[in-house]
């Protein structure tokens, strides 16, 4: 599986449009995150991909070919539902053994996967005694057993502690590295922003945008920010430096006290560094700040910061 695309997917429940002509695509080695308020349509799109909801219109394409969501396609999927739990009367090992066998994976793989998600010590214990985070880890183990080409995660960070999050990050990194795909829905933008390649923003069943964070940042007009701490000594050429930045056409500066904040156009940081180099004593320190996914999301949804 090298590419996956959901094209013009429309899902209607009665008169309500849960999804309206939404299109997203993903390439091998990419992580796509769907975001949006509750009921925006991200989970519905996930269910279309799982074959749980039949769309009224639209298609799923794998490597460019229209692909029905049949048992053959399902064999390449690993799924982690939101806030998953499992039967209380079984042990973690028994739960995972069932999903391993159901996916045609040898039971010998079970201890290794349980170890991978940090549940080796609790493998034989009944799920009844598992905490929320342990159940989520078991859900992760179920999703990754058999190493599916497409991992579908619904709110994967829910209930995970620091150690559990490390496990999740390592899984995301491995799937990227091995040129597999991850398709996930989450509200945790800040946690996941360095780990996603594409972000799809949904609102009221409509896909507002779907692109890489850099492209989305550019499309909504959010700029990289540089905060320069200026020298307090007027002999250091501070005035000349501020004038030079103001004359420079690729950044808008705002001076507050000794701090000059510059909103930079994409890729213009080096030019600002050149200006600084020409006034070596004027600037004592510099900090750069990328617009976060939260800021992009708020801008797209027009939520006041």
């Amino acid at each position: 599986m090298k590419t996956l695309a959901l094209e013009k997917v429309t899902v209607r429940f009665g008169t309500l449009y849960a999804l309206s002509s939404a299109s997203v695509s993903l390439e091998a080695g990419q992580v796509l995150m769907l975001v949006g308020p509750n009921g925006a349509g991200k989970t519905t799109l996930t269910r279309v991909l799982l074959g749980l909801v039949r769309p009224n219109a639209g298609v799923v394409r794998v490597d460019g070919e229209v692909c029905p969501i049949n048992n053959k396609f399902k064999k390449s999927i690993g799924y982690l539902p939101e806030a998953v739990s499992f039967s209380d009367s079984l042990s973690g090992k028994q739960v995972l053994r069932f999903f391993a066998r159901a996916r045609g994976v040898s039971s010998k793989a079970v201890p290794g996967v349980l170890d991978r998600v940090g549940l080796k010590h609790a493998a034989g214990r009944s799920v009844r005694g598992y905490s929320k985070g342990m159940r989520q880890r078991l859900g992760l183990a179920v999703a990754i057993i058999g190493e599916p080409k497409l991992l579908i995660l619904d709110e994967p960070t829910g209930g995970l502690d620091t150690e559990g999050l490390s496990v999740l990050w390592s899984i995301l990194a491995e799937w990227r590295e091995k040129k597999r795909m991850v398709f996930m829905a989450s509200h945790q933008l800040a946690m996941l922003e360095r780990r996603v390649d594409k972000m799809g923003v949904f609102l009221d069943g409509k896909l507002l945008a779907c692109d890489s964070p850099a492209e989305l940042r550019a499309s909504v007009g959010l700029k990289q920010k540089a905060v320069l701490s200026l020298s307090e000594d007027s002999n250091d050429g501070v005035e000349e430096f501020v004038e030079a930045v103001e004359d420079w056409k690729h950044g808008i500066g705002k001076l507050v006290g000794n701090n000059l904040t510059v909103h930079l156009e994409e890729g213009k940081l080096l030019e600002l560094m050149d200006i600084r180099a020409r006034h070596p004593n004027a600037v004592k320190g510099i900090q750069t700040q990328e617009p976060t996914l939260d800021m992009i999301y708020e801008r797209l949804l027009e939520i006041p910061a």
Binding site: R47, L50, G51, L52, K72, K75, R103, I152
Partner: peptide, 8 residues
């Protein structure tokens, strides 16, 4: 949903 996401 997890059960139905299997080839069944």
């Amino acid at each position: 949903g997890l059960l139905l996401s299997l080839a069944v």
